[in-house]
Write a protein that binds this DNA or RNA. Structure first.
Length: 471
DNA sequence: CTATGGCACGGATT
DNA sequence: AATCCGTGCCATAG
């Protein structure tokens, strides 16, 4: 497919252009940053220019006018959300030189490379040189949830060091972002997260007790049982559960739970950095929405004009090599711009139709499909799919959800269902729930209600009875 | 007999 | 082309 290359330049640029834009589209910020870095490093024709930032909010100023986040005058504009590209360089808070740090002798799959390196960077400064191999070894044995797959004792005996030392390294890892990574179990991860959290804010004291002694009850949502066990009102337990699901994440490396996992904390996740941030201007719900599409750099990329000039004087071999560099550089820049443009339009469209969802919560999510968006934007559906896949969005209420949740066909029904069950006077059977839903204008099969219930981790009616009796 | 969960099928979505 | 999701049918538990 690349034979065309040698013949003509134009078809090459267009197909390559498309291909590269596609791949860029599907990258998350972290990947995008890597991509840009490597491009920048390998191509001398590519230039990076620092740009102005807003003095108060530290965000980059748009082409003209005021900072969209902190200045008032923008209010005069319509109610439509402001969508813009927001470059940031505070992306990796800790950037340490870790060259030669990762030992080669251990095989770990390149796919999982991102998380280990990310963590390693953070803890590097606090790590004794001789403990580095321990850290690297531990990090190389994380599963996709960020949990450790090996026993600490094994590591200790493998390296002939004391268990204590391995534990110390593990603790260091656990406290890095994402907090709790490198724990042996979800329970351990939760405990670490509680501990870290308690340093900055108050944590319900029972929370730790519960996680430590009765996680299984917690995961199975046996709130009544818990209330009995700890001799507190069930209301209190529910508060704590709420706190836990708001702030903790049993799978440190996960952005969202798989469908059949412990549904106890199913609605909220803690994840490191969102790709997109949606907020109200000045955090005031009166103001229009601000949609920031995060760029990992605070500046623009362009083809270095000096390099262009130099090309004029170059000759022979050099000239063609440089010419190629320039081609590649400008292609990359174009693709990047197009990526941003597409993202911008995509978000514009999505935010417009899902405004209620963003402002008022899950109940108001409209079942928009990727196809409908693609039609509206006039692009291929797969483009949208790629752009949406793997990205995360921070909502005004600081929750971070996958972008794909904007396209969830049943979330609104599920939350409605959850509400109804939460308010129910007596346990309602699935069939009765179907009735109630149809009164709300939603027609679903009985079987489907059952499935939604299962997704939300709600027990069947006859089992819920016991709960309501206790409380 | 009623309420639910399992399996599997078809259509939509990606 | 592969996957996901809603749904119908049937078995099973209560």
């Amino acid at each position: 497919m690349f034979q065309i290359q040698s013949h003509s330049l134009r078809p090459l640029t267009t197909t390559a252009h498309l291909a590269q834009t596609m791949t860029l589209l599907s990258l998350t910020i972290e990947e995008l940053k890597q991509q840009i870095d490597s491009e920048l490093a390998s191509n001398p024709a590519l230039e990076f220019i620092e740009e102005r930032r807003c003095p108060t909010c530290h965000r980059l100023l748009p082409e003209r006018g005021f900072c969209p986040v902190c200045s008032r005058p923008l209010n005069q504009y319509s109610d439509d959300p402001v969508v813009f590209i927001s470059p940031r360089d505070d992306f990796h808070p800790v950037r340490q030189d870790v060259e030669g740090f990762l030992p080669e002798e251990h095989d770990y799959s390149p796919v999982e490379d991102a998380l280990p390196t990310y963590v390693l960077r953070q803890i590097a400064p606090d790590l004794a040189i001789e403990d580095r191999k321990l850290a690297a070894y531990l990090l190389a044995h994380l599963d996709e949830d960020g949990l450790l797959t090996i026993e600490l004792v094994e590591v200790a005996s493998y390296y002939h060091v004391s268990l204590e030392r391995v534990k110390a390294v593990q603790r260091l890892i656990q406290k890095a972002d994402p907090v709790g990574v490198g724990s042996r179990s979800t329970q351990e991860a939760l405990l670490v997260q509680l501990e870290v959290l308690s340093e900055t804010r108050s944590v319900p004291d029972l929370a730790q007790c519960i996680v430590e002694n009765s996680v299984d009850l917690l995961f199975r949502r046996q709130y009544a049982e818990l209330a009995r066990l700890y001799n507190v009102p069930q209301r209190r337990i529910e508060q704590i559960v709420h706190f836990i699901s708001e702030n903790l994440n049993p799978f440190p490396a996960r952005s969202h739970w798989g469908d059949v996992r412990q549904p106890s904390a199913a609605d909220v996740q803690v994840y490191h950095r969102p790709d997109i941030i949606i907020s109200y201007m000045n955090d005031d719900p009166q103001n229009p929405l601000i949609v920031e599409i995060i760029m990992p750099l605070s500046g623009t990329l362009r083809v270095n004009p000096l390099f262009r000039q130099a090309l004029q004087q170059a000759e022979g071999e050099q000239r063609s090599a440089w010419r190629e560099d320039i081609e590649k550089a400008s292609l990359f820049v174009k693709c990047l711009q197009q990526r941003n443009h597409t993202m911008q339009r995509l978000m514009q469209c999505v935010v417009k139709s899902q405004k209620d969802y963003i402002m008022y919560g899950d109940k108001h999510l409209k079942p928009v499909t990727r196809v409908s968006v693609s039609r509206e934007l006039g692009v291929h559906e797969s483009t949208i799919s790629r752009a949406v896949a793997g990205k995360t969005v921070q909502l005004p209420n600081k929750r971070i959800v996958p972008l794909s949740s904007f396209f969830d066909r049943s979330l609104n029904i599920r939350t409605l269902l959850k509400d109804m069950i939460a308010r129910e006077a007596r346990p309602l059977s699935d069939a009765e729930l179907v009735d109630m839903l149809s009164r709300e204008g939603i027609d679903v099969a009985r079987r489907t209600v059952a499935k939604y219930r299962a997704m939300e981790g709600i027990l069947p009616a006859h089992l819920r009875r016991s709960l309501s009796q206790v409380s």
